[in-house]
Simulated assay, not measured.
Amino acid sequence: MTGSDDRILEFLSETGAGHNLRGIQNNFEEQGDSISYTTLKRRVPKLEDADLVYVISGEGQYYAITEKGERYLQGEADLRDEPEPNA
């Protein structure tokens, strides 16, 4: 996990909605955060592989946080024993 991962998960948790990568990046820019689209393109699929986010069914790729992602943010899920997918 990286600091960017935590910020992505926190954003998805706070909004409670699904967002595509460009939407996430636009929101970070609006807030003055410096997570680039390239970073999102690299990290969000890893979060999906770790079952921390999922793609909402439907047209396009909109990501939302999973229950496991919420537990991680609350300190209830320990990911240290799990290998990082495609590190």
Rank of each mutant, 00 (worst) to 15 (best):
G58H: 04
I24N: 00
L73N: 06
R80P: 00
N26P: 00
A77I: 05
V55D: 01
E67K: 07
G58P: 02
Y62Q: 07
D78H: 06
S36V: 09
Y54Q: 07
S34C: 09
L79D: 05
S34T: 15
L73Y: 08
I35D: 02
G69D: 03
L12H: 05
G16P: 08
L73S: 06
G69W: 09
D51K: 11
N27S: 15
P45H: 04
I65N: 03
E29D: 11
D49S: 10
F11T: 15
Y63R: 09
T66A: 02
A87I: 11
E76Q: 11
S13E: 15
R22T: 15
E10P: 00
M1W: 10
L21K: 10
I56Q: 13
R22Y: 12
D81S: 08
L12S: 03
L40W: 07
G23I: 02
T2R: 08
R71K: 13
E48G: 02
Y54K: 07
I35E: 04
N86R: 08
Q31S: 15
K46H: 06
R22V: 15
G18K: 06
D33N: 11
S13M: 13
N86P: 00
E10F: 11
P45F: 04
D51G: 08
L12N: 03
F11D: 05
A77E: 15
G75A: 09
Q61S: 13
T15L: 09
Q25D: 02
L9H: 04
H19M: 08
T2P: 01
E10Y: 13
N26C: 07
P83A: 11
D81C: 04
L79N: 04
G69P: 01
D33I: 15
E48M: 10
I8D: 04
A77N: 03
R80N: 09
T38E: 14
T2G: 07
K46P: 00
R22L: 12
D6S: 09
D6Y: 14
A17E: 14
Q25H: 14
I24C: 07
G23H: 03
E14Y: 10
N20I: 01
F11V: 13
P85A: 10
P45I: 07
S4F: 11
Y62K: 08
T2N: 08
A87N: 09
P85M: 01
R42M: 04
T2E: 10
V55E: 12
K46A: 08
Y63G: 01
I65F: 13
D81Q: 07
